[in-house]
């Protein structure tokens, strides 16, 4: 059954408390919106298999608590993640302002330097927007991230966000194949070994 699954990808969702991380994930995995979702304690975990460009990928998605106090616990889950979704709330500027901190944390704890990052501006269904789309775009460009605005409530952009991320991960060589394709460094063309029997390149003596 699992035979056609290309790979299992570890994805991480981070961002300030209450920006809608768990809601986004729930929308993606169960296609529902539950206003009665409790604030996350520690980390939560969901699995979903998706197909991108005909490749099946199993996503193991870790939803972390944005709560300050849980943060000492969560960085450990950064280990080995191939993709990360960084969420802010477009109706709360403070959640956007904290993005830099999250990136620093990511840099510190994530074990791969080629992790694929996606920025999601959530809750665009709400009216009291405080962060302009362009600001998000600018931030994402500055930090080489993917960017999308979404709403867990109306479903806007949610599916797309996850698919884009997975596609990008799959396109990043060495990221999903657990590194097996590291090419060696060709150092010097020391051809002294070719001396004697020829056919190759050699010197007179």
């Amino acid at each position: 059954m699992d035979e056609d699954i290309l790979t299992t990808l570890k994805i991480l969702i981070i961002g300030e408390s209450g920006v809608g991380k768990s809601s986004l994930l729930l929308r993606f995995t169960d296609d529902t919106f539950d206003p009665e979702l409790a604030a996350t304690i520690g980390v939560d975990f969901k699995v979903k298999t998706i197909s991108v460009d005909g490749n099946k990928a199993k996503l193991a998605i870790w939803d972390t608590a944005g709560q300050e106090r849980f943060r000492t616990l969560t960085p450990s889950y950064y280990r080995g993640a191939q993709g990360v979704i960084l969420v802010y709330d477009v109706t709360r500027r403070d959640t956007f302002a904290k993005l830099d901190n999250w990136l620093t944390e990511l840099e510190t704890y994530c074990t791969r330097n080629d992790i694929v990052k996606m920025l999601v501006g959530n809750k665009i269904d709400k009216e009291n927007r405080e962060v302009d789309r362009n600001e998000g775009l600018k931030f994402a460009r500055k930090h080489s991230m993917l960017f999308i605005e979404a709403s867990a409530k109306t479903c806007d952009g949610v599916q797309c966000a996850f698919e884009e991320l997975v596609e990008k991960i799959i396109q990043t060589p060495g990221l999903w194949e657990s590194e097996s394709q590291n090419r060696g460094v060709k150092l010097s063309n020391d051809e002294d070994g070719h001396r004697g029997a020829c056919g190759g390149y050699c010197s007179v003596l």
Binding site: T29, A38, T40, I41, G42, V43, D44, F45, K46, V47, A60, W62, R69, F70, L73, S76, Y77
Partner: peptide, 24 residues
Amino acid sequence: SEVLAKLGTSAEGAHLRARMQSAC
């Protein structure tokens, strides 16, 4: 994280997971 992941993705699993992490 293995233990936590093993609890699965059901509502009960999620609840148990939260409970396990609620000591703090």
